[in-house]
Write a protein that binds this DNA or RNA. Sequence first.
DNA 1: CTTTGTGAAATTATTCACAGCA
DNA 2: TGCTGTGAATAATTTCACAAAG
Lengths: 207, 207
Amino acid sequence: MKRLTLYLREVERRLSQGESRVSSRQLGQGLGVTDTQIRKDLSWFGQFGQAGVGYAIEDLATRLRQILGKDRTWKTALVGAGRLGQAIMSYGPFAREGFEIAAVFDADPSLIGTEVGGRRIRRLDELDQIVREREIMLGIISVPKEAAQSTAERLIEAGVLGILNFAPVRLEVADRASVVSVDFSARLEQLAFQVSLGLKGSIDGDD
Amino acid sequence: MKRLTLYLREVERRLSQGESRVSSRQLGQGLGVTDTQIRKDLSWFGQFGQAGVGYAIEDLATRLRQILGKDRTWKTALVGAGRLGQAIMSYGPFAREGFEIAAVFDADPSLIGTEVGGRRIRRLDELDQIVREREIMLGIISVPKEAAQSTAERLIEAGVLGILNFAPVRLEVADRASVVSVDFSARLEQLAFQVSLGLKGSIDGDD
DNA sequence: CTTTGTGAAATTATTCACAGCA
DNA sequence: TGCTGTGAATAATTTCACAAAG
């Protein structure tokens, strides 16, 4: 459920501000979600709150972290160290939220061996070995779209269970892994579409 | 409708391969969408196809471009020329798909005046004037999350109608503009969630 | 009086089934 | 036969309404 990640973010923000309780209505306020929606979503995972009082923020955060698999560190391999790859490497939130970029690969010989943000860029043909050795479970694909499918296969072959795909193509992985895509162009197009329709307001918190 | 952008992409791919007709089933094949879904989606905008034959790819492309507002060039202001901003500037698909980055702004004095990818980086306080002068209609926000809301307001103030937001916060714009967000962390978290649930398969083509 | 958790109702999205056309 | 367009059926999601609890 894509809203859960938003809830956790907001709950952690409030936690860091020293708040200790929150109601579903308060939680939804800054998130553009109704209180009922939040309660329904949470109820899927059991009972968290206390009627008349609300939710204990710390408990809720802990529980959400468990549900979302954020109670551990996810080792991640980044494939593609071009500008986008570099932006991803230096993207603060990843590191802070339990995602460790444990290795970086690229096909371009001129990049191999260089360091970006303190990380050495490795040859693509080391991928299999290193992913296995370090027990890397997730892959991030920031290669040109032509190379995306083969990169995905390589990652899956090496044992990766999930892929975050930045290439504007649909990856064919059958049921060998989970794939989540981030598609800049598609989003910009959606924006243009909405503007030409004259729609206003915020769409999607993720998404 | 977020699938429309996928349809256009696939239609253009086929067009560039010299195909002239396509059925809804063929179109959906590589997209993970059912044929019925495609027909339903398209039917919202009128009748395109020919029973028994399918869709004339060129007509369909033209029509989709109109619907999605891709029959013109969208001038865009990029705010935030850090690594992510630079990745966006050099992201091929944008330029190719009718989005022109007409100006780039940043708050960091050490970046002002430098050129990245042939584009001069400007002071933030020139934003208003330049957006008006050049009739820029869209804004891309790739600034740190603390600065995102104020950047959004500045862009809207200057007359921008739509914002593509890369900061992991919800922008409060009331009904003064359309906002579409791209949230890396949220997506990566979703991926981790799915992997910990053991779900497999591709999620979202855009999204 | 406030707020949760949850069935029931309403709404929205997707799929089915098929008439009609080439 | 192969295919579109669409009303009807089904499924999924969201909202409503309210009993129970602090």
